[in-house]
């Protein structure tokens, strides 16, 4: 447990400090776009991904 390094602790991104700082800096450019996305209220919209329990059967040609 490294409370002084939440990125390593919480996200499992095990990088040297200078490398971690570079990745976080690059991510900041993208973060503004993610924050804009978060601002949308999509409560009633189902995600585009749909769980299909029969998928392995279909892929292998077996009847479920």
């Amino acid at each position: 447990m490294e409370p002084d390094n939440p990125i390593r602790e919480l996200l499992g991104l095990d990088l040297p400090p200078e490398r971690q700082a570079a990745v976080v800096a690059a991510y900041r450019d993208i973060l503004a776009n993610l924050e804009a996305l978060r601002s949308l209220d999509l409560t009633d919209v189902h995600p585009a991904i749909v769980f299909e329990p029969t998928a392995p059967y279909r892929q292998k040609g077996d009847a479920p």
């Binding site: 990125i7 499992g12 995600p47 991904i49």
Partner: peptide, 17 residues
């Protein structure tokens, strides 16, 4: 690694919209 699961699913909701 920095993208959260909630952000990912929000993106998939956005896609549908």
């Amino acid at each position: 690694r920095l993208v959260t699961g909630a952000d990912y699913l929000k993106a998939e909701q956005y896609r549908m919209a």
